[in-house]
Amino acid sequence: MQTTSKKGNAFTNNPIVRAIGLQRIVVVLAVILEAVLFSILSPAFRQYATVVSILDYSYYISFMAIGVTFCLISGGNDLSVGTGMICYALAGGYLVQQCGWPVWAGMLVTIAIGLCFGVLNGAMVAIMNLPPFIATLCTMLITRGLGSIITGGMAVSWPSRKGVGGWFRSLFKIIGTGNGLPKGTIIPVGFAIVLLSIVIMSVVLNKSKVGRYIIAIGSNKEAARLSGVNVVKYQMMAYIISGFFAGLAGIAYAATFSSSVAPGTGAGLELDAIGGAIIGGTSMTGGSGSIIGTLLGVFVMSLLKTGLPYVGLQANWQQIITGIVLIVAIYIDVLKNKRTA
């Protein structure tokens, strides 16, 4: 006998709907609705360039969000990904620009520093038992300050597309130069990297011990511990994954989003990532979430960021709307938890 206590109507009980998940259907609809709305309101929005721009936004948010999803599922959070991402990109870029390191080395350093901060966050949460919110809020401050100190307060420019080492920009976006590809043609290949990450991390979450134990810890830490799960190790893993992806996000940010990386920025970007994850159905209270959902949620956020200026709502309005969207998403999560409780 199947004891499903949840009530629902014909639509929510439909096997197809249940398989895909109601939340995911709603999020896809939200993405479509946003796109349609912006297209109607602004003719300028209906261009291929806009799609590219949406994708450019989506890369770095996606990477941050993939990492944060693991932290959220473990029952924690990582507020340091936004300023962290900038800090790591500053450090890596500084070595390339000022010290003449090759770009690949700069990229490795960017990811390595991200990993280090992931270990730090994980240690604070899992070993020192600091509340994740506070611990990562502190690393948010630390990475923001550290980024400025490394570069002496100067902005850092990663190599331009035509400069030495500019090839790394083509990892995310190929722009035709006339030979082979028509001049000006843009191919957003970064989306392939994002998709690949999504697939790999979905498998990690659902099919590996790391993912299984992170879910277990987020669901009931004490039960996981009593079942012999090394909770310290796997709780740390969530933050290390987050640090790694914050490093990747830093590279994506430098490669596609901005020609130079400025110290002191990045605060608030973590909310785009956390928001994306929550909109995608990851619970604030831990235990459940999906990587594909997170990607969908990220598109809700990145569409907002790209689309709002087209309809005349600039930065300040964007923040207000982002805030409102987050409140709604978290409230839905609260309601969901109430129902299952």
């Binding site: 879910i215 277990a216 669901s219 009931n220 039960a223 996981a224 012999g228 235990g287």
Partner: peptide, 16 residues
């Protein structure tokens, strides 16, 4: 001592 978000089988064999 159950992990509500995991399946029945995943709970039974957690840790092994």
């Amino acid at each position: 001592n159950m992990m509500n978000h995991l399946t029945v089988a995943q709970n039974i064999f957690i840790g092994r």
